[in-house]
Design a protein around this nucleic acid. Structure first.
Lengths: 218, 218
DNA sequence: AGCTTGAAAATTGGATCCAAAATACATTAC
DNA sequence: GTAATGTATTTTGGATCCAATTTTCAAGCT
């Protein structure tokens, strides 16, 4: 475990700080699947007692990011191919609908902001930023749908697969595919064509799924 | 707060026991929306210290069943009409697809088991059992879909709206509608007509949504 | 009366300490 | 040499104690 951290803010609870940091570390793949998260190791790292650490781990478990066994502790949880497929199938069901409902509400400013993220993503060479830029791009578009619950759930689904997506992007030409699809989605949004945007969102997710499962994509 | 409880099992953690009990109490409407859940009150109730109580509350918050504010504690969370609508829209998106994928895998035994729950639901006069029977019915059918993640998420969505559904069933003729729809779904499953089962599942959820939002249904 | 104000009580967040279980490891029997 | 066994260490789960914050409420002022 090669995790670093300095200083706990005073305005938010220690448990939340630890939760956020560990979530980020897991999503970014900084912590490997199966790696045990020892309570007092974390406690020392964050300069707290084990109590807030346990609360953070408990929350992470509810979100499926760690697995805990009684008296055995928490380990970073991974996904089988079947589980990953299930999550992508789920996203392919939700996100197109969110997109369809969001398109009519997109202002010119919003579209520009999204295009900004989209271009930043396409030009970024730092894999660690890809996840954030990708999520910023999609969240910006989805946000105006007003479907708060859908977004909450999609966020969690993304949390679970982001690591695998980044790994895939790094070692294949997945970036090219992702960029083409992103600009295609942008274009549909700018045209105000909700159905097209939804379809392209669906294809985008299916593309990611297949690229992940079959190794390298075309 | 009129909650009762006797004895903690030794095989599962205290936090889990408390979590399960509070979740049940909230879902069944035994605890009112907005009611504060004091840590040491819960601790005395379950004969533990506040530590496992805090872990349970933290988990409940991740599932949206309580809302917590720093130094102010947890209260049972409720839903605005918009939020409820959002959750039903979400379910109406997921559950028909789960049903569609489940129908081809339903064995004769499974169908009989589901019909059993369906009939028990139609004959039960005890509102407190309705929620369980209803979920047993749907979960039995959904279970064979193999879509574990979808089911996990649907379960949480159900957790959030069950209270309101029960209340609605109690004070209107919602029971009749629900039963007709349940038997319609059963019939489609028994015929092996996945699309019909999916459509009826969709209508079932839309029906519940409308019955809830417009007061009494026709 | 109504509104500040400030101390006491209640309540949550976190630290330290103890108990229960799992793991590691040395010792012994064969 | 290897496997079984029992003890020491590690690690987690829970209890108790302390600190930080909020809430309550009575006293004092206008």
């Amino acid at each position: 475990m090669a995790l670093k951290f300095e200083g706990i803010s005073k305005s938010t609870s220690a448990a939340t700080t630890i939760y956020d940091a560990l979530r980020k570390a897991i999503i970014e793949g900084e912590l490997e699947v199966g790696e045990p998260l020892r309570q007092d190791e974390m406690a020392k790292l964050f300069n707290t007692s084990r109590i807030p650490v346990r609360e953070a781990l408990s929350r992470l478990e509810e979100h499926g990011l760690v697995k805990t066994r009684r008296y055995k502790g928490a380990v970073v949880s991974g996904l089988s191919a079947d589980e990953a497929t299930g999550i992508f199938d789920f996203r392919a069901l939700i996100e197109p609908e969110v997109m369809r409902r969001a398109v009519p509400k997109m202002s010119r400013e919003l579209l520009q902001k999204a295009r900004g993220y989209c271009e930043a993503f396409s030009q970024s060479t730092e894999p660690l930023h890809w996840g954030d830029l990708n999520r910023d791009f999609h969240s910006t578009l989805y946000g105006v749908s007003g479907l708060a619950y859908h977004l909450e759930v999609v966020d969690n689904a993304m949390d679970r697969v982001d690591r695998y997506l980044r790994a895939q992007l790094v070692l294949s030409n997945g970036m090219d595919r992702a960029n083409i699809e992103h600009f295609g989605i942008m274009e549909a949004c700018e045209k105000g064509d909700a159905d097209l945007a939804a379809k392209r969102t669906f294809d985008h997710i299916e593309g990611a799924k297949n690229s992940l499962l079959h190794g390298i994509s075309a």
